[in-house]
């Protein structure tokens, strides 16, 4: 049994408050997913249920058709879909061959439901991110 590299997941803000054991449990739920250059990974406005961490390669981000940023090794995207399955907020396209680790809502939710400690830490982190976002908007 494998899973995503723990040091990569430790850099994801949503997981910052989790200890090594808790991140280890989440890491085991990740599955490898590879994309060819030019392949659309997520489409702005579409439904989504997976969060991705890049192991190698580059991906371009566009919002409403305009170039926004480039994602590289260790970067991640789609984490909000882990919680709400809501519509994607950007289009992400593989700019090169891209090796990722992906975690779906369906695999993540049972772990959180079964583990109140992890659930509470994620909730606290989400509240902090919301507070930061509000402060940034003022």
């Amino acid at each position: 049994m494998r899973g995503a590299p723990i040091d990569v997941l430790e850099r994801v803000p949503l997981f910052h408050d989790l200890d090594q054991g808790e991140i280890g449990q989440i890491a085991l739920l990740f599955k490898e997913r590879d994309f060819e250059a030019g392949e659309t990974i997520i489409q702005e406005g579409s439904g989504g249920a997976a969060f991705y961490v890049i192991e190698t390669g580059e991906a371009s981000v566009t919002i409403q058709g305009k170039p926004h940023s480039v994602l590289r090794q260790g970067d991640y995207f789609g984490e909000i879909a882990l919680i709400d399955e809501g519509p994607r907020m950007a289009t992400i396209t593989a700019a090169s061959r891209l090796d990722c680790w992906g975690l779906t809502y369906w695999d993540f939710r049972p772990l959180v439901e079964a583990n109140g400690v992890i659930g509470w830490k994620l909730l606290q982190r989400m509240a902090m991110m919301l507070r930061d976002a509000r402060a940034g908007g003022q």
Binding site: I42, S46, G47, A49, W106
Partner: peptide, 16 residues
């Protein structure tokens, strides 16, 4: 694994 992901892709989720 690719087929598993095709069932969990954004396109498949949108369709579902």
């Amino acid at each position: 694994r690719e087929i598993w992901w095709s069932a969990n892709s954004d396109a498949a989720i949108t369709y579902r």
